[in-house]
Write a protein that binds this DNA or RNA. Structure first.
Length: 108
DNA sequence: ATTCTGACGTGGG
DNA sequence: CCCCACGCCAGAA
């Protein structure tokens, strides 16, 4: 709904990310029709702190790199959360990223 | 109103 | 695969 801000839309899609899966900012941006504005997605995730239901740790950049781990409370909190879901993360890089990748446009 | 920043993506080399 | 430069647009100061 257009009544909700861009943030709410991003949060909504993020909440739809299945357990043990990850997606990229660009994928969400494209799903929202904001292709190319992937930055806005990342910025929106920043506001996701107000919404604990938003699994921001499941959203990484297109390389599968935990670029936003620095924004989490701990230094490696993001990695721990992902590993907790069965995702293997080495040096901020998600292993088998292409296999774990979840595309909202494709899946929804 | 203007300016800057930002958890990115893409294209070219 | 890596590196560099540009675009993108919403929000905060």
């Amino acid at each position: 709904m257009e009544t909700e801000s861009f943030f709410s839309k991003v949060h909504d899609v993020a909440k739809l990310i299945p357990y043990g899966r990850v997606t990229s900012y660009g994928a969400i941006a494209r799903y929202l029709g904001a292709a190319g504005s992937a930055r806005m997605v990342g910025w929106a995730m920043n506001a996701s702190h107000k919404d604990p239901d938003v699994p921001a740790h499941r959203v990484v950049n297109r390389k599968g790199l935990l670029t936003g781990k620095h924004h989490f409370a701990g230094t490696n909190l993001m990695q721990q959360l992902l590993e907790s879901e069965g995702i293997v993360v080495i040096d901020n890089q998600i292993q088998d990223f292409d296999r774990l990748f979840w595309d909202p446009m494709k899946e929804l």
